[in-house]
């Protein structure tokens, strides 16, 4: 799922609004795939270049353009994406551009290089480790009443007795690994299961948790 930004005229005011948004919630745009919908702007080639430079300056990663006239898009710019809607003034999308868009689609969801967090000891009851930027590795145990919230996967070399919430920024590929599974709650990409839902089958075992479509799958690691 990509976020769509639709710049409007006057562009200067719109960019100011954008800055206000990123100031209110820092990191809102980092790591998110973003498409720029310029169909209401109808920019010339130099205007489009200026707009892309303005995004780059704000660390906003544009993975695709929507609604730009193909003659204004050159090879250095993000590919055209038309998401099934009419792409601006052109009825028939340019074949070459469509191919580029299709080819880059699998990369659209690829996150930016992740930062991982290493916790040398144990996470004690009442502690909450929040790390939306990437993976979390815990060398000790995660106690009952504590929680780990990670944007990526969670690796626990001791026992998992608390909560592990992986892929919290919408990463369904995130996984949870632990040497001894006694979790109170596990979640990946917003889907969760409590200890009650899971029963006693995996209790005390080394386990990995991943997401298959809309269901949480547990497997023993041995």
């Amino acid at each position: 799922m990509a976020l769509v930004l639709a710049p409007e005229v006057p562009l200067r005011d719109w960019l100011e609004d954008l800055d206000a948004v990123s100031e209110r919630s820092p990191g809102f745009f980092t790591g998110r795939p973003i498409i720029a919908d310029v169909s209401s702007l109808k920019p010339s080639k130099s205007e489009l270049k200026f707009l892309l430079a303005a995004f780059k300056m704000r660390n906003i990663r544009i993975i695709g353009l929507e609604g730009a006239a193909p003659e204004n898009v050159d090879a250095e710019m993000p590919p055209q994406i038309n998401g099934g809607k009419p792409a601006g003034d052109i009825d028939v999308p340019d074949a070459a551009n469509a191919a580029v868009a299709a080819a880059s689609a699998p990369f659209a969801d690829a996150p930016v290089p992740e930062k991982s967090l290493l916790i040398e000891g144990s996470v004690r009851s009442g502690q909450s480790i929040l790390h939306p930027e990437g993976d979390v590795t815990v060398l000790g145990s995660v106690a009952s009443g504590s929680e780990i919230v990670a944007g990526g996967s969670i690796h626990i070399y001791g026992s998992l007795r608390g909560r592990a919430i992986a892929g919290c920024t919408g990463n369904g590929k995130a996984r949870i690994f632990c040497r001894k599974f006694e979790a109170e709650l596990i979640a990946i990409d917003g889907l969760y299961k409590t200890a009650d839902d899971l029963g006693g089958k995996f209790l005390g075992q080394p386990v990995q948790v991943n997401l298959d479509g809309d269901s949480i799958i547990l497997k023993t690691l041995d």
Binding site: V123, R124, S125, G126, Q127, A143
Partner: peptide, 13 residues
Amino acid sequence: VRDSDRIIGLLDS
């Protein structure tokens, strides 16, 4: 035991 665990966390922070 769980309360002690919480206290150990506070002792460390």
